[in-house]
């Protein structure tokens, strides 16, 4: 690194004090957010922490004279990839928080040992290296007429095979996603005759109670009250009940004084019994 070309000495590519301050503040933030990605219990928090990491890295790219990559990082990663993650999270179930119990004995300990074995030699070794003043990209940028023309020239001329290959990869990925995300109907579609038969022969021939039959609250997440004052488990949408079981008991304070315990039947089975009916029958007004 001692042989700095003469052209770049005029243009300052040196690491200034402002950059050092930015590095330490933002680097701490990025490391903390990365730890948050790994150790937050809910997957949505992990995704949001991931956004912090991505944007922090985008700022680092900007500092390191890579404005094109900074924009691509924000547009592609924070904008597209992360939103795709959040979209799939919402589909797969936000509330599916991991149990953090380890299934393999000594798994955590071994992971920590491996991480330390990797991190300590690498960081201590890298910290011992002094790279000196960076050469910087200013000379090349000036010669190519800008940072983006330089990258474009490299991609189109020198790396054109890789460029074409990534094009083929993207097309294949699109086709793969289309094929994988397309779902054939796993169960046969129930006819109206079957639905009416199931309904009459089932244990609940009448329409299900609607939610929120109080005078003051008619929100969809308020359970209806039965004549004896208990909560009707059937009045809540099974999706809401599955997301948050506490909704089953979300009865207003002033009405709950006369309410006994919730009925003993298990809400899960009750919800799953009605699941098919509610999804399939559009005509079943609640």
């Amino acid at each position: 690194m001692n042989t700095v070309p003469l052209q770049t000495t005029a243009v300052s590519a040196a690491v200034g004090g402002g950059e050092a301050a930015t590095f330490y503040v933002l680097g701490t933030l990025v490391v903390l957010a990365a730890l948050g990605v790994v150790f937050s219990r809910k997957a949505v928090y992990s995704a949001l922490m991931m956004a912090v990491v991505m944007i922090g890295l985008a700022v680092f790219y900007g500092i390191n004279q890579a404005p094109f990559l900074m924009v691509v990082q924000i547009v592609v990663y924070t904008g597209a990839v992360l939103m795709l993650f959040l979209f799939v999270l919402m589909l797969v179930g936000v509330s599916s928080s991991d149990s953090l119990v380890e299934t393999i004995r000594g798994h955590r300990l071994l992971t920590a040992v491996i991480a330390l074995c990797f991190l300590v030699p690498l960081v201590s070794g890298l910290a011992a290296i002094t790279a000196g003043e960076p050469v910087g990209l200013s000379a090349g940028v000036a010669a190519a007429g800008g940072s983006i023309p330089w990258i474009a020239g490299e991609i189109i001329y020198r790396y054109v095979i890789a460029f074409e290959a990534t094009g083929a990869l993207l097309i294949t990925a699109v086709l793969g996603a289309l094929v994988l995300a397309h779902s054939a109907r796993t169960k046969k579609k129930r006819t109206q005759r079957q639905m009416s038969q199931d309904r009459i022969r089932g244990d609940h021939p009448t329409p299900l109670p609607g939610p929120g039959t109080y005078a003051r609250h008619n929100a969809i997440d308020m359970p209806a009250l039965l004549p004896d004052g208990s909560v009707s488990q059937l009045s809540i949408n099974p999706v809401l009940a599955a997301r948050n079981p506490e909704l089953q008991h979300g009865v207003p304070e002033d009405l709950s004084y006369s309410i006994g315990a919730a009925p003993d039947e298990k809400p899960d089975t009750a919800a799953s019994d009605n699941d098919g009916q509610r999804e399939d029958e559009g005509s079943w007004t609640r």
Binding site: A13, Q65, A131, G136, L137, A139, G140, W150, I151, E154
Partner: peptide, 8 residues
């Protein structure tokens, strides 16, 4: 890339 002055 910045340290070595190349765009690769």
């Amino acid at each position: 890339s910045r340290m070595h002055g190349g765009i690769e």
